[in-house]
Every structure is written in structure tokens, then in C-alpha cells.
Design a protein around this nucleic acid. Sequence first.
DNA 1: ATGCAGGCGCGCA
DNA 2: TGCGCGCCTGCA
Length: 284
Amino acid sequence: MEQKYILENQNSFNSTHIFECGQCFRWNKEEDNNYTGIFKNNVINVKEEKNQIIFSGICEGDIKEECINYFDLDQDYESIKNRLSKIDNYLANSIKYGEGIRILNQDLWETIISFIISANNNIPRIKGIIERLAKQYGKEIEFRGKKYYTFPTPEELSNASIEDFRKLGLGFRDVRVYETVQKTLNKEIDLVKLENENNVETLREELLKIPGVGPKVADCIMLFSLKKYQVFPVDVWVRRVISELYFENEEQKPKTIQGFAKKQYGDLAGLAQQYLFYWRRDLA
DNA sequence: ATGCAGGCGCGCA
DNA sequence: TGCGCGCCTGCA
């Protein structure tokens, strides 16, 4: 049964900015610019009218609570943007460009597996792989006549072999995902412990023990699922944009970039990263 | 068509 | 510890 939640007068919310800024893989654009996506056991459509954001869909719990949590609606992005805009004009301009970005509060397990898959990969292919994984191993939910599939839990993936993953197109990431599933099932990887670890350095160390998780993927997991707004994932685009703007187009090493980001943007570096990434990648 | 795409893991100094 | 290189695959 469909539920609905309407959010009024929220200026910092733009579906395109939120869903196309590289943080998520399971939202797809419908005809008139609204988006349908799936998180946890919820299938939600997001539609923007003047002064209104309309969330509707199939929800396990209360749609309002689910959306407030997932879309980080208790966070005051206006004041965050004001703070960041004072830092420098490059950042201020990119914030204007992606003014409706919000960092989603995504499921930890899904984020770990999705970003392992993202390694040396492109977004259309990442999305395809995740859809096939969900269709094969997730639970089906029907919404407005279409079928959607939840992201499979470790238990639902427990019988999948390396070869099964390879057939779904994971490529060399098959072993990494397989081992991560197994280590999660036998508690070598403890998702609850990871969720409760608030020290970023300790957390990063723990995440780096997961097969297929290197520095970039660890940072993405911390930013996109664990609300660690100070981490600054450095991918090719971020490396490019920071080098261009602040280092006279001289390519810098990721470590230099991260040091610079910490100094320049401080405890909201991760949010700055999203605005800069979205702005720069859209130019290309 | 051949390099590239949101890296990681390995081997070698 | 710091590099360089190979890797599945699909898409431009």
C-alpha cells in the first residue's frame, strides 16, 4: 500500500543534484524529471513541485521517518552552505551550481558492496551490476506495476559463488565481493561495530581490512553511509578539479590533495568534495 | 577501435 | 613505504 509524505519549503533539495552526484546507484529518472529508487525495503518516488517535495511509495515503516533519515532532512544545509561559501569563491560557485545536493544516509552493507564494485569502473556499468545482483538475490517489491528488487543481505548472498558473481559481470571484483560476504557472515567483518565506531582513523583502519576496500572506497563508505563529513574521497575528478583550481593545473598526489582539503575546508571537507565533484564532472 | 571508467592488490626496489 | 603494472568489462 502506497504512503505519501510532502515536504514544504525546503530549498536545499534537488533530485538531480542528489541522485547524479555520484553517491548512489539505485535511483533512476522517470519521464518528467522525477526519480524512483530503492533503499532498505522501500521503493520511493520523489517528485518536485513548486515549494513541495513529494515522496510516495511502498515503505516498510513510516515513510516520513524513513525519508527524514535517508535524505538527511534534519540537517541544516542552508547553514552548511553559508559556512562553506565563505571559504573561497571556487567553492562558493560550485555550491551555487549544486545547491540542492544532500548527502544520503545509505545502508552500510549496500554501500560497502557497491563501492567495491565501483573500483576501476564506470557508473552505467556499476548500476547494471547492482541491478543484476538485486534481481538475482534480493526481494521483489512491486510498485505502480513495475518490479523492484531490494539490495541483497549477506545472508541472501551466502550461497553465491565466485563464478556466480563473475556471470553477473563483476569481473575481477568477484573474489573481493565473495570474500567480503563470507567474512561478514562469519563476523570477521562486524557491521554493527563499524556503524558504532566514531573515530575516523580507527574506522578507516577497520574498513581497509575489507577485501576490495582501499583508501578511496573507505572514504566513500564513511561519507556516504556513516556521516563522516570530514573525509575527502579523492577520485580522478576531485584530483583534477583541486589541481586545476588551487595548484595551477599541476597534477597533485592524492595525499597532497587530502592534506590541502583538510586545511582548506576543515570538518566539512566531504561536503565540499561533493559540490566540487558535481560541478567539475558536469563540465566534462 | 583502443583507451578509459569514481582502484585495488601484488611484486619489486 | 613507495612505486608501477595488470585486471574484467562495456562503452565512447
